[in-house]
Amino acid sequence: MRIRYFMLHAYGMGGTIRTVVNHANAMAAAGHDVEVVSLVRRRERPRFGLDPRVPIVTLVDQRGGRLPDPLGRRAWRRLRGKIVPRGEFAAAYFTERVERAAIGYVASLRDGVLVTTRPALSLIAARRAPKGVLTVAQEHMNLSAYPETIRRQIARHYGRLDAVAVPTRTNRHAYERLLPGAPIVQIPNAVHRVEREPSRQVNPVVVAAGRLTPQKGFDLLIEAFARVVAEHPEWRLRIFGTGARRAELGGLVERLGLGGHVTLAGRTDRLDLELANASVYALSSRFEGLPMVMIEAMAHALPVVAFDCPTGPQDVLTDGTDGVLVPPRDVSALADALNRVVSDRDLRVRMGKAAAETARAYGPEQVMPLWEDLFAALAHGERVTGTFWHDR
């Protein structure tokens, strides 16, 4: 089967890119004809390793900088909204040249499966893909996180897609309410592998990872960790990731006097090792889709302390068994939960063992056959529903 994964920037970092690369690699290993399509390219090499059988096709090469648009940026901003709506999180990428390239690529296809990985690309597929192409929107963010401008366009156009795949039960119900009768399916994302080096629970280290943006809530985590340090000064917090809020977060660390306790460690190619050497994983997001790094941490037998944010953590964790869930954005509750977990090694060991077992459900051996079943059903003209896939 010919499968194309259409991404904004396959050469970048982030959970969506990591997840799509995992999918592409697994499908190639299963014998499918797989291609990754990157709408733009701004780096020399991909950050995540692709199977040699999976080529990357670039539509707009921006390694030398962005070329001026024929209409000019101001004119194109006035026109934008016909397909890529205002409110798209990556709106800055969608210049006239880039959007036209995406539309032209989708319209040129004649067969196979096209998997789109964000609303802008899914809306283009819904409106421009020829009938011979099977279109699957792979949603990575919860519906409520999108601005109203995006949700209106989803409600208007996603029903034309052959399937809308969401990773959590909560998100499936939200899409079913917005799109009654549409082919919504629930299939979780898969981690690269679940056999990981387990934490030995000997290092007083809490790890968090993600883009340094407001979504990930690292400001809330740093405030909570200040209270942990007051009771457990030997513990350290290491936050991995890059982003626009680095200077702001660094200033918060300094203001709270946490320079010796909190490290903004930047990007790493050794996250597996960092997780294995830690003892707790913290997730402080204001909202999520399905937090894949959290599941990878669980595969390392790390207990998780997380905000019960929409969506993701509650769809994976069982409070008190493989982690601790606290009310969203409640810094005091997050600090109390961290203090409880870091002070009790036996609790960490017990929760970590349960976390590793939970993570097994997200291994490629469990998840990728569901995607193969979905693609095969669509190829045979079957209409799929969320209940069918949820019950499998």
Rank of each mutant, 00 (worst) to 15 (best):
R18D: 09
Q314P: 01
E35Y: 00
R227N: 13
V37E: 03
L252S: 10
A165P: 01
W76S: 02
I295P: 08
D272V: 02
G31Q: 01
V326F: 07
S285P: 07
E372H: 03
P147G: 12
R78D: 11
N171W: 03
V202Q: 15
V293P: 03
P130H: 05
L258P: 05
L212A: 03
A137N: 04
F375H: 15
A174T: 07
Q153W: 05
G217C: 08
Y11M: 08
Q366M: 15
R196Y: 02
P214Y: 06
L370V: 06
R110W: 05
F375K: 01
G323R: 00
A301V: 04
D61C: 04
F307G: 05
R43C: 03
L161A: 10
P70E: 08
L67D: 14
P52T: 09
A30E: 11
D269A: 14
G352T: 05
A30V: 04
Y105F: 15
Q314S: 15
V229K: 13
R286V: 12
A208N: 05
V98S: 06
R77A: 13
A276C: 13
I154D: 11
P46V: 03
G159M: 06
D344N: 13
E88A: 14
R43P: 02
R2L: 15
R255S: 14
R360Y: 00
V253F: 01
E365T: 12
A102M: 13
F240M: 03
E365N: 13
R286P: 02
P46A: 09
L134F: 05
M292N: 15
T95L: 03
A137H: 10
A10N: 13
N22M: 11
G381Q: 01
L178A: 11
R156G: 01
A10C: 15
P167A: 12
V331P: 00
R74W: 13
K216C: 07
H380N: 11
R127D: 14
D219T: 08
V185W: 07
R78F: 11
A182K: 01
H380D: 12
L325W: 02
A126T: 07
W76P: 00
D162P: 00
E382D: 15
V262C: 02
V228L: 09
G72N: 09
D391H: 11
A376Q: 12
R270G: 12
A297Q: 03
V205M: 12
C309P: 08
L374F: 10
R211Y: 07
L271M: 10
H140P: 08
G112F: 06
L249R: 04
Y158M: 04
I150Q: 11
F89C: 05
M298V: 04
A278G: 08
L143N: 07
Q186I: 03
E248T: 13
A101R: 06
R329H: 09
T358K: 12
T311E: 11
R74T: 14
R270D: 15
A182I: 00
W235G: 08
Y281H: 08
A163S: 11
V84P: 01
M292F: 04
A359I: 02
L212Y: 02
T263P: 00
P327D: 02
V349S: 07
G352A: 07
L161T: 11
E234I: 05
G251M: 00
V349I: 14
A226K: 12
